[in-house]
Amino acid sequence: MATTAVERPGAVTMFGKPVTLVGPKIEVGQQAPDFTVVDTGLQPKRLADFKGHVLLIASVPSLDTGVCSAETRTFNERAASFGPDVRVLTISMDLPFAQKRWCGAEGIERVVTLSDHKEAAFGTAYGTLIKEHRLLARAVFVVDRQGQVTYVEYVPEVTQHPDYDAAVAAVQQATR
């Protein structure tokens, strides 16, 4: 029997208008939900592929927008201070080809871009899928080495930046 995905009407806004997020609201302390996305080489990637690492996972609508581009560049720069056991993942609905092109043009080397375009598995597992636009809402999650969520930020207005300092502090705390 198929289950119906949780819908959270008005959970965030986009350009000032309330939108519906599909999927549960992730909470600090829970086990990070599994997901399958595609990397820029068209290979499937799951949460388990990053087991044993601290993860900073950024959910963004599209790398080809100003805020998403700036966010990914900022996390790429901040990742230079992270140890080798930290992985920064940026997940969007962009096609893998566009992600690869964008990373090459921007010189992104410390962020792994992943595409949720096929199944929206990440978006529905982490409650970031915007029903009205089939894009991902802006959110940041930190997952510790044991797979537990230690930090969550659903940015209330999708067109605004996340709290970079709080996310980086959460990563630093998780690596201790």
Rank of each mutant, 00 (worst) to 15 (best):
G52K: 05
A32V: 02
T74A: 05
F75N: 02
L129Q: 14
R46L: 07
L21T: 02
R73P: 04
D34I: 04
K17N: 15
V60W: 00
R87N: 09
Q31K: 10
Q30W: 14
L47V: 01
R110P: 08
L42E: 06
D85S: 14
V37L: 13
V112D: 11
T40F: 01
D34V: 14
V88W: 06
A125N: 06
M93Y: 01
S69C: 03
G83R: 11
P96A: 07
P24F: 08
L63W: 02
V54R: 01
G107Q: 09
I26H: 11
A80H: 10
A105C: 12
P44T: 01
I108R: 00
F15W: 13
D85G: 06
A125R: 03
D94T: 00
V86D: 12
D64L: 14
S81Q: 14
R78N: 07
D49V: 06
T74K: 08
L63K: 01
L56M: 05
T72G: 05
T65H: 02
G107K: 09
G52V: 12
D94R: 08
H53C: 02
E119A: 08
K17V: 13
V60Q: 01
K100E: 09
F122T: 07
V111N: 05
R101V: 13
A32F: 01
E132Q: 04
P61F: 07
L89V: 11
Q43H: 07
A79I: 15
K45A: 11
K51F: 05
G52T: 04
D39G: 04
T113F: 00
I108P: 00
M14H: 11
T40D: 05
V19M: 03
T113Q: 13
K25G: 06
G29V: 07
A98S: 03
Y126Q: 13
I26C: 15
V60P: 00
T20Q: 15
V28W: 00
F97H: 14
V111T: 10
I91M: 13
L135C: 13
I91P: 00
D85W: 04
S92Y: 01
C103T: 07
R110E: 12
G123P: 09
W102M: 07
C103F: 12
V19Q: 04
L95M: 03
S62G: 10
L135V: 08
H133W: 05
Q43P: 00
A32C: 04
D116E: 04
D64Y: 10
